[in-house]
Computed example of a mutant assay.
Amino acid sequence: MKPVGQARPGFPCWVSLAARSLQAAQEFYTAVLGWTWRSTGLDEEFRTALFGGAPVAGIGELANSLRGAVAWTPFFAVADADATAARIHERGGTVGVGPLAFGPDRRAALAADPDGAVFGFWEGEALPGWAAEPDSAPAWLELRTRDAFAAALFYGEVFGWAAPEGPCSVEYENDEVIVGEAERKLAVIRGGAVEQAPDPRVRPRWYVHFRVPDVTAAVAAARAAGGTVALPPAPSAAGRQATLRDPDGGLFTVTAA
């Protein structure tokens, strides 16, 4: 896979799915999102999803010995994976895997924030993904958590969003934290208001929103391909969207382009 240069620290740089069956996942996401596929060159159990010829996501197959939940995971670019891991530990998060080397110039790790939402971080040359091709890659990321303000502090300190010269703009508005660049929304953190106690019913997790030309058609294709609808099509501040579940249980959101 050809790199596209150094990823910008603090920015989302990739999303990936750990599926129970690589072949079944490819068939489902081809039907719903119109993706095509190519080998990553790293392992036969990993594939890169393409849309319009541009890489948008990665899918790998879970080892038979692993029984973890199937989920989409966002990755954020960092300048130093070891320093990032240390900041995560210092701020109450955990690093479950890595940092591991992927070739001579890339390292990646999986972590969880203090409330348990899983995310990854990536050091080195960027995989060609949504940071390089924003018009064809995932629309944006959304963290649904118990306390948006606390989560924003954690991620802001881990990824440098809180720094005066940080890479992103961070705004707190209507109980949401919006992370962006110019007019482009990169991530939204949603949770309870500052004056409210955290909601224990919320299971914190990151959601990936994929652009589609027709939300209704994507929902119909998901049902026909064996998926289910977690949240039916409805208008939102970001446009019409629906949250779907693939046959393995992986949640994702489709958003009108």
Rank of each mutant, 00 (worst) to 15 (best):
G68T: 15
F11G: 01
H89R: 09
T73Q: 08
E165C: 03
E195C: 02
E157M: 11
S39G: 10
A151F: 06
A256G: 08
G124A: 09
V158K: 00
L66P: 02
L62E: 09
G160Y: 01
G52L: 06
F159W: 01
V15E: 10
F76E: 00
G166R: 07
V219G: 15
I189D: 03
F46D: 01
A83P: 14
G58W: 00
A85L: 07
A257V: 12
A131R: 06
V95N: 01
L141M: 09
A112C: 12
D113E: 09
P3K: 06
G103R: 12
D80A: 09
V188N: 11
A256M: 05
P99S: 09
H89L: 01
T36H: 02
V188L: 15
W37K: 00
G191C: 03
Q196F: 08
G5V: 05
P198S: 07
G98S: 14
P138M: 05
F149Q: 00
A24P: 03
T228G: 13
E195I: 05
A163S: 11
R87P: 07
A25Q: 00
G52H: 00
F102V: 13
T84Y: 13
R205T: 08
E45Y: 05
G192M: 13
P198F: 03
W161Y: 13
D80G: 09
V177M: 07
E171G: 01
G10S: 05
A18W: 01
A101Y: 10
A49C: 11
T48E: 08
L66A: 08
F119K: 04
T255E: 10
T228R: 14
V202R: 05
E157C: 05
C168W: 05
A137I: 08
F149K: 02
P164W: 04
E173Q: 15
A242H: 11
R146Y: 15
L231V: 15
G116R: 05
F51N: 03
P200M: 13
G120I: 14
P198Q: 06
T73R: 11
T40I: 00
D135S: 13
F51Y: 11
P213Y: 00
S39V: 08
E181A: 06
R87V: 06
R20H: 12
L110T: 10
L50D: 06
P235E: 12
G227W: 02
A54Q: 11
W161S: 10
A222Q: 07
V32P: 06
G239C: 14
P204K: 14
F28R: 12
P3D: 12
R67G: 07
T40A: 00
P164S: 02
Q6C: 09
E44C: 01
A220G: 07
A19P: 12
A25I: 04
E181N: 08
F75K: 10
R205Q: 14
F159D: 04
E176R: 15
A224K: 07
P9C: 09
D214A: 09
T255S: 12
P138I: 04
P213Q: 03
R107Y: 07
D115A: 15
V70F: 09
A31I: 12
A112S: 15
Y207H: 14
A83W: 14
R38K: 12
D82G: 05
R8Q: 09
V95H: 03
T216N: 11
G98E: 13
